[in-house]
Nucleic acid binder design. Structure first.
Lengths: 224, 224
DNA sequence: ATAAAAATTAGACGCTGTTTAATTTCGGTG
DNA sequence: CACCGAAATTAAACAGCGTCTAATTTTTAT
C-alpha cells in the first residue's frame, strides 16, 4: 500500500498526470486505462478518483499537459527562427511536427469529449490559451497591425485551417486521399489567407477582383 | 432466437448497419455498444461478428453509410442552388449543416481509428470518394479550369480547411475560443483560397491584384 | 496511547469486446 | 416424412473497463 507520506498532494497530482500522460503517449486514447495509469504511478484507481474526482477531470489534466508541451514546442521553434515570413512557416510546421511526434497525446486532446457540466478551471484555461496567444502574436506581427476582435477571429480561423490539415493527416484520411505533403499545403493555405487579409479593405469587400490598395503589396513569397 | 430465414444475408447486413447507425446517432461513438446495436436489430452480438468479422469492420460499414448520406446531402443542397459563387458557399454550408445535424455520426467517422491491417474494400472506397468527387467537381467549375493533380491537391486542402473549422466547432474547441460563427469563417477562407488559386500565374507570383479571369466573376456577396 | 481524520485500497457491480462451444434452423437426400 | 450435415444464431465464459462503497491503513492531534 502506498503511503500517503510518499508524496505531497501536489506531488501526487503531478505524478499521476505524468504517468497518465506517458501511458497516453504509448497506448492512445482508445486503449487508455485509468487502472493502468494508477498502477504505473504505484497506486490504484481509487486514488485517481480521490485526487481528480472523475476520470474526465483526470483526462483534462493530462490533455492540459499536452497543450503546455505544445506551446513550449512552438516557442522553441520560433526562437530558432528569423523574423519575417519564415516565422509563419515555422509556426505551421512546428504545429505539425509536434502533432506528429506526439500522435497519441495530440489526438487525445480531441478524442476526449469533456462533459458540459465539467468546465475547465482557471489554471487549465490559462495554460491552454498560451497556444492561441502565440499564434495571435505571430499573426498580428505578420499582418503588421492589430484590428482587435477581427484579428482574433482570423487567428482562430487560421488555427482551424492548420488543424484541419493536421487532423486529416494524422487520422489517416489525408493519406487516403493520396496527399504526400499536407504540411506544406497547410503552409501555403496559411500564406494565402494571410495575404488576403493583409489589407483591411479586402475584408469587407464582396469582390473577387479587388482594386489594389496601397501598402498591400508584400514582397514575393511562395514555394509551391 | 432469430430465424435465419428472417432476412437474407444482404438484408441482415443492411439491417445491422441501419440499426448501428441509428444507435450511433443517439449515443455517439464513446457510448456505442455492439451488444446494444445487435439487440436493436433483434439479434445478439455474435451475429455481428458473424456478418462483419470484427467490430472495426462493422464500424467501418456504419461510417460508410454516413459518408453516403453526407454526399446525398451535399448534392441536394447544390441542386437547390444557382450557378456561380453561390455553389461554393452552398458546398461549405451544407458540409457544416450535415455535420451539425448528424453530430454523433459525423464525429464517429473521425473517432473510429481503423487498424492498419483492415483496409477498406472497393465498395467502401467508392462510396466515400463520392464526397471528394463532388467537391472536386464544384471547385473545378469555380476555378474555370482543371490542372489535374494540382487541382486535386487544392481540393483536398480545401476540404481540410473546412473540416478544421467544422471539427473544432463541433468538438467544442471553437466555442471555447468564443467564435460565434465558424461556418461563415470557413466560407470566407474557402473564398480566399480559391481566389488565390484562380489564376495559375498567381500561384507562383507575389501579386495581390489579379486581372479577372473569364467565368470566375460571380456576383457580389459577403456576410462578415 | 488513543481517537479522529484522511488517504488508500479491496471488492463489488454492470458493462464492454471477443472468443468458443453449444444450440437451433435450414436445405438437400434418402 | 425422416434424417443429416451445414450454416446461422446464441449462450456462456473471459478479462478488462469505469465507477462507487466499504473496509483498511496511515497520519495527525489530543
Amino acid at each position: 500500500m502506498a503511503r500517503r507520506s510518499d508524496h505531497s498532494p501536489k506531488e501526487l497530482r503531478q505524478l499521476l498526470v505524468a504517468c497518465g500522460h506517458a501511458l497516453m503517449a504509448e497506448t492512445g486514447f482508445a486503449k487508455f486505462s485509468a487502472r493502468a495509469a494508477a498502477r504505473r504511478a504505484g497506486y490504484t484507481v481509487g486514488t485517481i478518483y480521490n485526487v481528480f474526482g472523475s476520470l474526465d477531470s483526470y483526462l483534462l489534466a493530462i490533455n492540459t499537459r499536452t497543450f503546455s508541451l505544445w506551446a513550449d514546442w512552438l516557442e522553441a521553434a520560433l526562437a530558432r527562427c528569423d523574423d519575417g515570413d519564415a516565422r509563419i512557416e515555422a509556426l505551421v510546421r512546428s504545429y505539425f511536427s509536434f502533432a506528429e511526434q506526439n500522435r497519441h497525446c495530440w489526438m487525445a486532446i480531441y478524442d476526449h469529449r469533456r462533459p458540459v457540466d465539467l468546465p475547465l478551471d482557471e489554471a487549465d484555461m490559462r495554460e491552454r490559451h498560451r497556444l492561441t496567444a502565440i499564434v495571435d502574436r505571430e499573426v498580428t506581427i505578420a499582418l503588421g497591425r492589430d484590428e482587435g476582435e477581427a484579428t482574433r477571429r482570423l487567428v482562430r480561423s487560421l488555427i482551424a485551417t492548420v488543424h484541419g490539415h493536421c487532423a486529416l493527416h494524422l487520422g489517416g484520411s489525408y493519406a487516403l486521399m493520396d496527399e504526400p505533403d499536407p504540411e506544406t499545403q497547410a503552409v501555403v493555405r496559411a500564406r494565402e489567407i494571410l495575404q488576403a487579409n493583409l489589407d483591411p479593405a479586402w475584408a469587407s469587400a464582396p469582390v473577387l477582383n479587388p482594386t489594389p490598395s496601397p501598402g498591400a503589396s508584400p514582397t514575393a513569397r511562395n514555394s509551391r
